[in-house]
């Protein structure tokens, strides 16, 4: 019994130490005078591998989720004779919830795991040590550009996701099931507000971007530099980041729309 309490205490201490290490890592990576000439190409490179490479999966998922929303929404709403409300239903679900959240989950799976594996591999092959011995700070050189890339990319991806999703809902609802074209858009416009719905969605996706990228980088940077360690860290990135996103989503939703 005492042993179990001790183990719990140890686990608590470890997680606090882990969070502290992650915080130190991030501050050391981001604080300091920026060197635009050197960091711009690095940022571009990372925006490419983190953002551009995730675009396909985001567009495809967004389209399908929007189409499913259109189909499901229609079958429910038509019972109440309220199929005119399909537009706002699709748009609000996407803008407030599905856009930021599903993008963050897909991002954690696609880009987050890749970031962890990449940095873990750099650690295992002594590339990070080697940078340090060359008097180049790996936090500034490797971590920082990846962090900014993640932070900039995810809100863009979330906006694309929502836009494509709404178009998917339009395809199914209007083109296929015959909801009135004008009503679809006008009822949507009457119910969706720029400041309230779209801005809050963007704020959500910025928060998620911060958390997911941070977790991915921290897991990679602090992994055990062996093949087992890297694969564990990668799994842990996806799990931790997904849970963090879902938990934070509840908190944010309560604050914004509660």
């Amino acid at each position: 019994m005492l042993n179990k309490v001790a183990a719990l205490g140890q686990a608590t201490l470890n997680s606090i130490a882990g969070a502290g290490a992650a915080l130190i890592m991030l501050t050391r990576a981001l604080v300091g005078k920026p060197q635009l000439r050197k960091s711009w190409p690095l940022l571009m490179q990372q925006m490419y591998s983190v953002g551009v490479m995730s675009l396909i999966i985001i567009v495809v998922s967004g389209l399908f989720i929007g189409m499913v929303l259109g189909l499901q929404g229609y079958t429910i709403l038509v019972d109440f004779g309220a199929e005119q409300s399909l537009g706002p239903m699709v748009a609000l679900s996407l803008l407030r919830e599905l856009g930021p959240v599903v993008t963050a989950l897909l991002f954690a799976g696609r880009a987050g795991s890749a970031l962890t594996a990449e940095i873990g591999l750099m650690k295992a092959t002594e590339q990070l040590s080697s940078l340090e011995m060359m008097a180049v700070d790996p936090l500034r050189r490797v971590i920082a550009p990846r962090f900014w890339a993640g932070l900039y990319s995810m809100p863009i991806l979330a906006a694309v996701f929502s836009a494509v999703g709404i178009y998917g809902g339009y395809l199914v609802g209007v083109r296929w099931l015959g909801v009135d074209d004008g009503a679809f858009w006008s009822v949507m416009q009457a119910n969706v507000e720029w400041g309230h719905d779209i801005m809050n969605g963007i704020i959500k996706s910025v928060v998620f971007a911060f958390v997911v990228t941070w977790i991915a980088l921290h897991k990679g940077f602090n992994c055990t530099p062996t093949s087992v360690g890297i694969s564990k860290a990668t799994t842990s990135t996806v799990v931790t980041a997904s849970l963090a996103v879902l938990g934070l989503d509840f908190v944010l939703t309560a604050l914004m729309f509660g």
Binding site: Y48, S153, S162, A163, I166
Partner: peptide
């Protein structure tokens, strides 16, 4: 790479414009 990233950002802005002008009041 720069070209691709530029396009990526433009797509993002277009998506935001679409949301703002077409979906919201």
């Amino acid at each position: 790479t720069q070209l691709a990233v530029g396009l990526f950002v433009i797509i993002g802005v277009l998506a935001l414009l679409f949301l703002g002008l077409q979906a919201a009041n």
